[in-house]
Design a protein around this nucleic acid. Structure first.
Lengths: 191, 191, 191, 191
DNA sequence: CATGAATGAGTTTTCATTCAT
DNA sequence: AATGAATGAAAACTCATTCAT
């Protein structure tokens, strides 16, 4: 019986954290942040309350960690080659990959959305932090529309933004939403 | 010497109930239902906790009363001239009145949105009732694009729908959202 | 329209007090003293809370008044000619009149009993007060048994006392209790 | 380093629950169920209010748990040698054991009595259950007097029954009740 | 005499967090 | 790393009592 290596331990830690977060997301989304107790999360994750505090220093930090993960998942698929320039193919790729992500993990994103909208999340400042992280997206999009010859790039971005949010919202909460058809329309009209 | 008349008491009750509800709506929308305590509502309404319970038998009843009031106000403002035909002017009027509504009752809509999405609250039936009452709006829009001779009316409607939802979402949760500018863009591009 | 005379007013006051007490007794007995609220009593008596406080200065005073009335009803039928001597006829009369009283107003006594046993009543000291008022009964009974030639009058009284309490208790809570037969047995064996 | 074992925790839980129940019984019996606050119970048990709720999910459940325990203890102590015949010694033993029971569990009986009589609590079914379980005592007494050749066994039983109830009632609510002396008298006169 | 709006201290209950083991 | 007993501050709610009218 050799003791676990540091690496193994870190691996275990990481997995357990993921597990706790997924359980918590489920419960937060189902009942809301405030109506979900730490006890309940621990019970559903089959661990003790004490251990949960070993992984997350407070209920709020657990929340922030969940929100942050979701942000990162979105950001990462934008400008994949990191050259600072957004080509048409990359924009199409971005739209496709966001929609793909939603399709593959619809329940996660539904929960995530319901979390995002809760005032508790808004109060937690994390949304602002995200806006900073995401600002380069807007900058690159602006440049993209400028290069494409738009007279009013800002409006173009705003409309794209609104449409994407609307799709997000509707797709997640309407089981019969014709996502493939909509995807085509978006690419035709806005890329 | 004489006690207050029944009329006087009814007057007092009505006014105070309205006052409490408006204070509570503000707080619920700002911090969420669970994060707002009865103590806090009472303090903000400058009354005792006891009195609040004299008027609303529980926190949940207070919430339901607020939601119900909100519906009533909105249904009324949506009601068109009922001639069954949506002209271009009427569509502009529609868009304007939806945005107006949001601006006038931002608190309510924020609260509504945060409730809408929480499955636990979803069960309270109030939300369904509202969705039914509001569905006629989308039906009339569909008819409008058909008459206007669009080659792909369904797509036009979908895009407008998505955009409106996106606006809804962003306006409610972004305090710096340039609603007036967006309004203009929407009317230019989608009417 | 002549104003009501002082006498009439007193009459009205007396009747209203009686009414309140009877309503309160009913509720206290049904739900217990603590579980019965002043609001509830007032509602059932069809008066306002304020008016109730006009008649009884506190909830506890109302309780005491009810208890006290019950005591008086019992005491009054003992030694009716007030000569201080208890004859055999008078003892029989006493037993009969207590049982009569129970029969005529079974529901009152049931309620009264259930009130007596509640710890709230015990704490209110009123029971002690009663014991003082009733002590002369024991004195007269002792003299009675002494005169009758009992070797152990104290034990005779105790047994009579226990039996009477037992009858009281059983008759009130057992609808098929053969009260007439028991009455005969008691008079045969203990008078 | 290691957490408490499951066994240790169960031990702690069991002991603490017993402790809380015994403190609560004392207070309920002394001041009544409603007049005893959870705060007060916790203070007397030297624990926090929160911990009490860790062990009993509500005040009412705590009450029910106490009543239920009381029944169990008593049923056991009542159980005779089950030969179906009640000798004179056994009757004396009976009377003694009933009185013993009262003396040992005065708090419980007082609480039980105060509940027994309140119709609201009556509904909780626990009380009925007990009455059924205890009824065999009276059946065996009846048989005893029949065998003893009494001319009017029914009356003998009734009088004993009344006396026992009277004792019960008086002993529980009169702190100076001379129980030992009464016990002697009963055995002399009724066995 | 009569009302019920209004109060505030007290009640039951919940829950994030800590800590001995 | 792991447990859950224990805490205490705060929540929702109740109710005897007061008082302006």
């Amino acid at each position: 019986m050799t003791p676990r290596t540091i690496l193994q331990n870190e691996q275990i830690r990481r997995l357990k954290k993921e597990h706790i977060k997924s359980v918590a997301l489920e419960l937060f989304a189902e009942h809301g942040y405030h109506a979900t107790s730490i006890s309940n999360i621990a019970k559903n994750a089959s661990i003790s309350k004490g251990l949960l505090y070993n992984y997350f220093e407070s209920k709020e930090r657990l929340l922030k960690s969940i929100i942050s993960d979701g942000f990162d998942k979105i950001i990462v698929s934008f400008d994949p080659n990191k050259d600072g320039i957004l080509t048409q193919e990359e924009l199409i790729f971005f739209i496709n990959s966001i929609i793909d992500m939603m399709q593959k993990d619809k329940s996660f994103w539904r929960l995530y959305m319901s979390l995002l909208i809760q005032p508790a999340v808004h109060d937690s400042k994390i949304v602002e932090e995200f806006r900073d992280k995401a600002s380069f997206v807007f900058k690159m999009l602006t440049e993209y529309y400028v290069r494409k010859g738009s007279k009013d790039p800002e409006s173009d971005i705003t409309v794209l933004h609104m449409v994407m949010d609307g799709i997000f919202f509707n797709y997640l909460y309407d089981d019969e939403f014709p996502i493939e058809k909509i995807k085509k329309i978006i690419i035709e009209r806005f890329v």
